[in-house]
Every structure is written in C-alpha cells, then in structure tokens.
Design a protein around this nucleic acid. Structure first.
Length: 568
RNA sequence: UGGGCUGUCGUCAAGUGGUAAGACACAUGGUUUUGGUCCAUGCAUUCCCGGGUUCGAAUCCUGGCAGCCCAGCCA
C-alpha cells in the first residue's frame, strides 16, 4: 500500500510537463483552438541543419505528436539572395533521418506571396502602412536608439492612394533596390525598437528559387511569419528566445488585419559545450578546411552526426532529455554521448578489432592449427546470435593491454601474468622480445588448452579479459578517432584578441592506418553500428570507406574506468 | 542607458505558500568472459543578494545585483 503510493508519486513527478505543454493543456481545457494542436518547423533554406535545429524539430514535431496534432514543414524563404534549393533538399533529408514526417504538409512562405501582397494593400488602406523613400542610413537615423525616441519619416502621412500606387510600382520592378520600402505605421517612440515603423517590404531584383523572377519585392520576417502561421492555421508557433521582442509585432499584424491569430511561444535554444552552432562559424570551419565539409563527423550538423554513427533515436532522446525552458543554457557534451552510448549499447554488434597491434606468439600452439570459436554478437540482445572467430598461433592484441613492470591496479597482460582472451583461452606471458633499441617487437605466451572458450575447469580466475585477432585471418582497416573539435568548453569565450578558431583542438582527428579486424568485421555493412569490444562504437565512413579498404569512424568511446585510474 | 526575458547542485531541470524531484557528471561498493552494461549508495539544511509579509517562503511583496536579447532593406 505504502510503496504503491510512493510509486505513484514518483511517476507523477517524473512526468511533470514543460511550460509549453502546460500552456497547451490550458488551451485545450479552455477550448482556445477547439482543442487542436498544430505546430510548424519553419527553417530558412540557407544552411545545413545542426543539433540546435534537432531540438527545435523534436519540440515542434514531438509536442504535436503528444497531442495527436499536426506539424507542417515550411520553408521560410523570404530572402532569395541567401537561399538555395540545395538546402531545401538537405533539410528534408535530415528531418526524415530524425524520423519525423510532415506527410503532405510541405509549404513555402513564397507560395503565399500573392496573399501577403493583398494583406499589405489592406494595411495601407487602413492607414496602417505607407511607402517610405528614406535611404538605408536615413531609416537608421530616424529610428533613434534604445534610449532616444525616433522621429517620423517625412513620408509617414503619404496619401493612401499614393502608397498603393508606389507599392504597385515597387512590385513591378520600376524602382532600383533600396529606393523605397513599405513600412507599418506604428510608433516611432515605442520603447521596443521593433515597433518603430518596421519594414514590411523591401525591393530586391533577385531570382527566387521557387518563384523565379516574378517578384521584385520580398516581405520581411515579422510581416511574413505571422501571416504564414495564420494562413496555415497554426495554433502554437514555437520559436527561440531571441524572437521575444518580435512577438509584439507578430500580434500587431494579425490584430491589424483581424485574421486568425496563433500564439507565439519562445523557448531557449540548445547550446552544447565544446562545439559551435552558429551558421556563420560552421561555414567558416568548412571554408577554412578545418573540417572535411558540412558532414565531417566532428561537426554538430545532423549530416555530420549521421556520418559519425550517431543514431536518430540517440539524438532524439538527447533532445528530449535536455528539457524545455526559457533559461539560456549550455548542455555538456557528456550528456549527448551518454545517450549515444545508451542506444548503441542496446543496438550495436560486438566485434573484435585491434587498433594498435602488438604481436603475440602462442609458443605451445601448433603452427598449422586453427580453431573457429563461437562469440556472442550482442549480449544485450540474444536475437543477434553468434558468430565464429578464428584462433591461431599468431595473434594481435592491443599495445595498451601489455605493460612491463605493471602496477598492482593494472589487470592486463604482463610477464608471468595470466589473462583471458575473449571467447578463446587463458594465456600467460613468458617472454618479451625486443629489438636492440629496447622496443618491444612481440610477446611469447603459452596457452592452457583446458581453458577453451574462456573458463578454467579448476575454477581459477583471471582479472582481465582482452580482445584479439588472429594475424593470419585479420584484415587491415583504417580507423578514425574523433575527439572534440574545441579544447574549450565555450569556444566563444572572449579572451582578448582571440576568436573561436584559436580554441580548435589540434587532436580532433587521429587516423590509424594499421588496424586489424576479425573476418566478420572485414565484411562490415554500411549504416550498421558496431562495437569494437573494449574500445568503442564504430561506423563505416560513408565518404572514404570502400570494400577493399574499410574506413571506420569512432562514433563514441566506451566509458573507460582504467583511464581514470591510470591518470590518478 | 529604454524595453523584453532569465537567475534552483559542476551541467541541464522539476517545483506555482506546507518544509528542495529527476537526469548527466562525480565518488564508493556489488555483479560481470568488454576495467563496457547493469545494480546499490552518496552528492543543494538551501534556491543570485538584502529587507519585509506569514505559524510556514525557492514560491508572495520590496529594493538591489548579474546574464542574455533588441537600434539589418537577416531570420
């Protein structure tokens, strides 16, 4: 009885809702939108999606899903000079990869351009907008500052008919860029700068990837976005904190036009330590060839994470795990890695591969003999079955797994010490063979035939189990180890004269050419996550790997308790 | 500086007047043919600071302080 109550209580607490879901609960209760929940994900097609967008996607699609609502994918393509179809394709691919579906609701802001134009005319007719002839610099000057009120444009009281006519000419391409703008007539002394007669249209003689050369004027964000949401019947327009100042305008346009009015709700964007997510900075990493492209496995882009071997489920779990609130925050990279490991532990195939080989000769094992030993593919999922791994006289083990004059806490191989080779035998190191310079060339060991499979009939124990591959049967592969791109938690931290590029980690990529894997791994498939036992999770590189020369990306390391002990 | 928003463990984050959830990280033990996984335990006498209201305050009032956003014909 008592424990039941405790369970109930703890369940309830762990399910507390974020502030947006609380708002939606209230809206549903009050019948605000007839119980509907309809969100949208509105990227501008001017760059690749990154982990920050992933959170927005999980928020937009996830919330709608929770309430059995809908989510539209809408390209907010109101500025043709920065946008490109290249991005509309990649963005769709990335959202699909994350596992979300907008069904037939793919929209473009540009498909509403005619409607926007009508709304603009209506605003003029209501005396709420005017065509302004101020130059760029003048507009800036007339706007005032945060502490000083602005002053009205000389065109502010332009007759309605004249504004209408001028707007028509702007639309037809009769004027040069930057000669005229359409502005909302609001309040030049408003304490919120956004309200000081914001621009509605600007002239751009630009080719648009969707509408071609039809338009010579393009709408500004504040005018367009609320209308897009209104036209699509969005209920909750979720966006990031920096738009808080814009909400007043969002509401103003919809009220002025007296049309369907969704509500904008802002939440904090996702920041992660040891990386950057600004479009400009990511682009610079690509342009300066610091990384291998937008999909470099070190990039926080969705395509980068995909190439590295992160799974959609891990990324989604992470995004859900970071929470949804209004406070600016930076999540530790460790949390992302935790979710990646969590997913991969359940869903990866265990294999054996040696990254830094050290040759071992089993001196009492017959030279011409080989055995194929059964190994479990995934102890977390018996359905993944077993495979056979070849064993023979000459093996490779990991250099790190042998130490001369080993300390007490080192459990692995050393002279005179016995360890287990996973799924194979107990071996004992008898001799260390070195060259004249004292460099270790190989190890001589003996094996105990009684311990086949890894258990001693006499019940004796060993402290370590090590991975290995048979030299004769091994395939050489390339393995790429990735470390964080930046050495500083916050690459944007301001030290005098430094930029984020000064905190690039010189060791963010280590390429190992001389790695050896078991036969099953030599046949590794693309898009499958593997665990190299005791090392980490790996994924075939989509760019450089080939059947002749497999290239593996390290997705993430295994947690390494020994590394901690060693470093103390 | 005018306005908008935010300050709860190292990092996220619940909490909505009844005596500080949870996760990651960290630490310590146990299990283990991966020093992985898993399991157990510990980890904020205190919520940016000061004053007030109250039997009772992270929650209410008040005065400070700190951080972020806004002065693109970007979104």
């Amino acid at each position: 009885m008592i424990s039941n109550n405790i369970d109930l209580e703890s369940t309830k607490k762990s399910e507390t809702k974020d502030f947006i879901r609380q708002i939606i609960d209230k809206d549903i209760e009050s019948g605000k939108y007839g119980g509907r929940v309809h969100t949208r994900f509105p990227p501008e097609p001017n760059g690749y999606l990154h982990i920050g967008h992933a959170k927005a996607i999980v928020v937009d699609f996830g919330i709608a899903e929770d309430y059995h609502g809908l989510t539209n994918l809408r390209f907010d393509d109101t500025n043709p000079v920065t946008e490109d179809v290249e991005y509309v394709d990649s963005i769709q691919a990335d959202i699909k990869w994350l596992g979300y579906d907008w069904e037939d609701r793919l929209y473009y802001a540009s498909q509403y351009f005619d409607k926007f134009y009508e709304y603009a005319q209506e605003l003029i007719k209501k005396g709420l907008a005017y065509v302004c002839s101020l130059s760029l610099d003048q507009i800036k000057e007339y706007r005032g500052t945060v502490t000083e009120a602005g002053k009205p444009s000389p065109d502010r009281e332009r007759p309605i008919a004249e504004s209408l006519e001028l707007l028509e000419k702007m639309k037809n391409g009769d004027f040069a860029e930057a000669t005229y703008t359409l502005r909302a007539k609001i309040d030049m002394s408003h304490s919120n700068m956004k309200m000081r007669d914001p621009l509605i249209y600007r002239i751009k003689h630009a080719h648009h990837h969707q509408t071609g050369d039809k338009w010579h004027i393009y709408p500004m964000y504040d005018f367009a976005h609320c209308l897009e949401d209104s036209i699509e019947g969005i209920t909750h327009s979720l966006c990031t904190l920096e738009f808080q100042n814009n909400r007043i305008l969002y509401d103003w346009f919809l009220d002025a036009l007296e049309i369907y009015h969704p509500q904008q709700i802002e939440f904090a964007r996702l920041n992660i330590t040891h990386t950057v997510t600004s479009k400009r900075k990511l682009k610079q990493l690509v342009d300066d060839k610091i990384v291998d492209g937008w999909d470099d496995p070190r990039m926080p882009t969705i395509c980068g994470m995909r190439r590295r071997g992160y799974t959609p489920q891990a990324v989604r779990n992470f995004c859900e795990g970071v929470g949804l609130a209004k406070r600016e925050s930076t999540v530790e990279m460790a949390l992302l890695e935790y979710h990646v490991r969590q997913d991969l532990n359940k869903n990866s195939l265990r294999m054996m591969g040696v990254v830094n080989p050290l040759k071992v000769v089993i001196t009492n094992y017959p030279e011409d003999q080989e055995e194929w030993l059964e190994a479990v593919n995934n102890p977390e999922n018996p359905e993944d079955g077993t495979r056979l791994v070849p064993f023979s006289r000459e093996l490779y083990i990991e250099q790190e797994d042998f130490m001369e004059d080993a300390p007490k806490k080192f459990f692995r191989l050393s002279q005179g010490r016995e360890v287990r080779l996973r799924y194979a035998y107990f071996i004992t190191c008898t001799d260390v063979i070195k060259d004249q310079a004292g460099k270790i060339l190989e190890l001589h060991c003996t094996y105990d035939p009684e311990t086949k499979g890894g258990n001693a009939p006499d019940g004796r124990k060993v402290k370590a189990t090590m991975h290995w591959v048979s030299v004769k049967h091994a395939t050489q592969v390339e393995v790429r180890m990735y470390n964080s791109l930046f050495v500083e938690e916050n690459p944007d931290k301001k030290e005098e004269g430094k930029t984020f590029l000064d905190y690039i980690n010189p060791d963010s990529l280590e390429i190992n050419q001389n790695c050896w894997v078991e036969p099953e791994l030599a046949k590794a498939k693309a898009e499958v996550n593997y665990q190299f036992e005791r090392i980490g999770y790996f994924f075939l590189d989509s760019k450089y790997s080939s059947p002749e020369k497999p290239v593996f990306n390290r997705t993430v390391t295994l947690k390494d308790t020994w590394a901690k002990i060693k470093n103390n």
